[in-house]
Design a binder for these strands. Structure first.
Length: 858
RNA sequence: GCCCGGGUAGCCCAAUCGGUAGAGGCAGGGGACUUAAAAUCCCCCGAGUGUGGGUUCGACCCCCACCCCGGGCACCA
């Protein structure tokens, strides 16, 4: 027998898989069903981290299992290769984003191959490849033709010092991250996609996604934020001007005593002109512009605002109400204007209290003391009856909502409305390392798309980024200077690039036919493989990526490029990989240490203790990461994969533990000894189980039960930790089993072969090696998945627990097919049971077949 | 504050439909092997399920209230 040496076997099988193209999908479907397994592709940041190892280990189990079940499995991998980190790294290291990115891809591809994942590497794609993004450009032009893409003004972080737009993450405390002074908001034309056209479909579609975690669906529903209400027009006193508000509480309209406008609302600036308050209001608007959004959003921030010098007229009672601008009113929700009802809205209440504005109660809670504006300590937001509401008095407020809207409709001053929180998708990024926008701006013709024959618009790769924070494209004449495709005059190419969520919104489509050069996807391939049957990734993408991808799918469907409504049928969100932290020092001086610098709570370098912090998500900043490279070098891929899967079920967080890794190493070593150490006996074992011993029967039962539970754990329960535990159990059973000859030898051989196959999705290298050792021909991947034989798992006798009054008092062995009456009789006959039951006939007897008898004494 | 998870042995985790709380691993104790150690093998120890109520013949599981931890969020009119 040899020792288990992963370094000697893993590379060998990886080479074999690559050479045989084991994981390539058959060109034509041979009558087999397809299974499209996809894990979220990584951003090529440098090296793999443990989160990747876990994500891809989970996906690989599912892919390998489905393949074993006879599916044509599509399991691709690629690179989400555009993004800001590449630009930053390029500036720091004086290199080019493309070079940095491609070098990272090479490193990470090597690591993935070392882990032995079952990808079809021929389908690998990188989103920064022109053959990829050209289709994004082509489809974008189609979206523009359909009116789905449009331009509108948006606010951007502008740094005067750099003369560029900054991403949110490049703004630190309102200042430019490169120390070039304050950042101000500047309006610029931006490309947008009308995702809001699909609000209802995106919302209703969630109900069809039974294979998605409810947490993700809940978050998406909240993000779309559909609410029913009314839009109401208020006239401005003395002006030819209406203000439109959105409210979910039209029933409180009679209680409206003032109006609040967002500081950014155009009317705020416009209406104050010529009033004594003008200067103050303009100062307030500017002041609000510099306050960080996060701070304004914080509910602890005090309500702030001021009168803008104008009044509005309540359309139902003619009341003249002051117009305020207020910090808590959001410009981009609803209409950016709020009818304030301080008696029945807590925010309006606080604002009114602060600025001494009148309250008017219009909803009276049923059966309680009348509300008194003088003594109210909070707004009343509950249900009740309408009062001080003209003809609506006495109406329950719910019914009042419709009644007031009807009244407004008659007056032509309002209507029933549905409002969504979701806003259109802003696409333009003033960045370099992204997909160029395939549009030309011509003075005469306006916006002109780049003709299809001229696609792709290539991102130049031979430019210097310079040391300002911005993109070189606007100053790169060879890039932006073009002739208008329509009239031929001098024109300017759009120098923005797309949000990188664009590329990740359709990569699952491109994988179906990554080399297709007639369009985004070969229709036949799309028909064969879409949608993704199982998607695996982090919960952090619950909203943005997963919502954009769903939207994009619907757009592609409407453009006739793909069929189907949803991109991902089943979704699994895996938990984070966590580790405790080690540090010293106080506050900002605190210095962190990597786990491998620590031994027994002490820094190896000086032998002195460090502060051991809580178990939190692995991150570079806290240095609580474990390097997959070292782990791979020391234990090999199978152990690394196994530990990630064994430590916790996929959706839960994993606490990294070195001792747990050791345990997995020991387990695979035990498997090795049990199988490799008995290879000759296993190979020589007969086929027949005639004359099996009692122990042999038990082993066979264990084998077949393990097959059944592991299969169920993988396929239905997606609980790989228990599947591995079952494999450990079977290993233990094999290790302690003595028989090697005759029928018992056959039972041992059966168990060993089953173990190897069951283990193969988790630890494919050792499984293949042992399979070969046992004389297996070809690859283990081509062997069928074992099937549990119910005749073997069946038991002749069962242990029935006898409870008296709900407490366990005895147990009895009975034939498995015992009847209820016989089981109860057998239980009653027991001396121990009699003692607890007493003389009287029992009040109640419950029999759970094969499990227990519960006798409740009289 | 609101929404979504989670709290089981010293630790990570099982208990699948409301039916014996313990499968698996780690750690700990004892033993075997060894000159010794490592490795390996065998045996053992261990909680009554965050807290308090309730429903039930029976509750880790269902209901109510509360505590703690994690994640998410929208002052959304």
């Amino acid at each position: 027998m040899s020792d288990y040496k992963p370094s000697e076997i893993e590379a060998k099988w990886q080479a074999r898989w690559a050479q045989d193209k084991t994981f390539a999908v058959a060109e034509e479907a041979g009558g087999r069903p397809k299974f499209y397994m996809l894990e979220m592709f990584p951003y090529p940041s440098g090296k793999l981290h443990m989160g990747h190892v876990r994500n891809y280990s989970i996906g690989d189990v599912m892919a390998r299992y489905r393949r074993a079940q006879g599916f044509d499995v599509l399991h691709p991998m690629g690179w989400d290769a555009f993004g800001l980190p590449a630009e930053n790294a390029a500036r720091e290291n004086n290199t080019h984003p493309a070079k940095w990115t491609r070098s990272n891809i090479a490193t990470m591809r090597g690591q993935l191959k070392q882990l032995g994942f079952s990808y079809d590497w021929d389908r690998e794609l990188a989103t920064c490849d022109p053959d990829y993004y050209r289709w994004e450009q082509a489809v974008f032009i189609k979206m523009w033709e359909q009116g789905l893409a449009y331009r509108k003004k948006g606010l951007l972080n502008w740094c005067d010092g750099c003369g560029t737009v900054l991403a949110n993450e490049q703004v630190e405390d309102g200042d430019c991250w490169r120390g070039h002074g304050p950042v101000r908001q500047r309006e610029m034309e931006q490309w947008n996609l009308r995702i809001t056209n699909y609000c209802d479909e995106l919302l209703d579609g969630l109900d069809t996604l039974e294979g998605w975690p409810s947490a993700v669906k809940v978050q998406q529903r909240a993000w779309i934020g559909k609410s029913h209400g009314a839009s109401i027009l208020f006239a401005v006193d003395g002006q030819e001007q209406d203000i439109e508000v959105f409210t979910t509480r039209p029933d409180t309209l009679y209680g409206c005593t003032f109006m609040s406008l967002a500081p950014e609302h155009p009317l705020t600036r416009q209406l104050c002109v010529g009033t004594p308050q003008e200067a103050d209001v303009l100062a307030f608007i500017d002041a609000m512009g510099t306050v960080e959004k996060a701070e304004r959003m914080d509910d602890k921030t005090e309500k702030q605002g001021l009168f803008i010098g104008r009044h509005a007229i309540n359309p139902v009672n003619g009341r003249r109400i002051p117009i305020y601008t207020a910090n808590f009113v959001l410009a981009d929700y609803g209409t950016g204007a709020v009818m304030a009802v301080p008696a029945h809205d807590q925010r309006d209440f606080e604002f009114a209290q602060k600025y001494g504005i009148d309250l008017q109660v219009v909803i009276q809670p049923e059966g309680e003391e009348p509300l008194d504006v003088a003594t109210m300590e909070a707004a009343f937001t509950g249900e009740g009856t309408m009062v001080h509401s003209g003809t609506h008095d006495g109406t329950p407020n719910e019914a009042g909502k419709t009644a007031v809207v009807a009244q407004l409709t008659e007056l032509c001053r309002g209507s029933s409305t549905i409002n969504y929180r979701l806003r259109d998708w802003g696409l333009s990024r003033q960045r370099f390392w992204g997909c160029p926008v395939p549009m030309v701006h011509c003075e005469a013709c306006g916006i002109v798309p780049v003709p299809e024959a001229d696609l792709p618009v290539l991102l130049p790769e031979d430019v210097s980024l310079g040391d300002h924070g911005g993109s070189p494209l606007p100053v790169l004449e060879s890039f932006w200077k073009v002739d208008c495709p329509k009239c031929g005059a001098d024109a300017r190419r759009d120098t923005d690039t797309f949000d990188t969520f664009m590329e990740s919104s359709w990569y699952q489509v491109r994988y179906c036919s990554p080399d297709y050069d007639q369009g985004m996807v070969d229709p036949a391939a799309a028909k064969r493989f879409l949608p993704v049957d199982q998607y695996v990734g982090g919960i952090e993408h619950a909203v943005m990526h997963l919502l954009y991808a769903r939207f994009y799918m619907k757009v592609l469907r409407d453009l006739g490029i793909v069929e189907g409504d949803e991109p991902f049928t089943n979704l699994l969100c895996q938990g984070m990989v966590c580790h405790e932290t080690y540090s010293r020092g106080e506050g900002t001086e605190r210095k962190y240490y990597y786990p491998n610098e620590i031994e027994d709570g002490r820094l190896k370098a000086d032998g002195k203790p460090v502060d051991v912090g809580p178990v939190i998500k692995m991150s570079k900043s806290k240095k609580n990461t474990v390097d997959p490279e070292k782990l791979l070098a020391h234990y090999g891929a199978d152990v690394a994969r196994l530990f990630c899967l064994f430590a916790a079920p996929p959706h839960k967080d994993v606490d990294w533990s070195d001792s747990g890794v050791d345990g997995c190493w020991r387990f695979l070593s035990r498997v090795w000894r049990a199988v490799d150490g008995n290879a000759e006996a296993i190979k020589a074992a007969p086929d027949s189980f005639d004359g099996l011993s009692k122990a042999g029967k038990d082993l066979r039962r264990t084998t077949h039960q393990t097959i059944a539970t592991v299969t169920d754990d993988i396929e239905r329960r997606m609980q790989f930790n228990t599947a591995i535990a079952r494999c450990m159990e079977l290993t233990n059973a094999l290790s302690s089993f003595k028989g090697r000859e005759g029928a018992d030898g056959a039972a041992f051989a059966e168990g060993a072969r089953a173990l190897v196959r069951l283990l193969s999705p988790f630890a494919p290298h050792i499984a293949n090696e042992l399979w070969t050792t046992l004389g297996g021909e070809g690859l283990l991947e081509d062997q069928p998945w074992p099937v549990s034989d119910e005749a073997v798992t069946a038991v002749s006798e069962v242990t029935i627990v006898v409870m008296v009054g709900g407490k366990r008092r005895d147990e009895i062995q009975l034939p498995a097919d015992v009847t209820e009456d016989d089981a109860i009789a057998a239980a009653m006959a027991r001396e121990k049971v009699q003692k607890w039951v007493g003389e009287k006939p029992p009040r109640f007897v419950k029999y759970v077949p094969g499990r227990l008898v519960n006798i409740v004494p009289g």
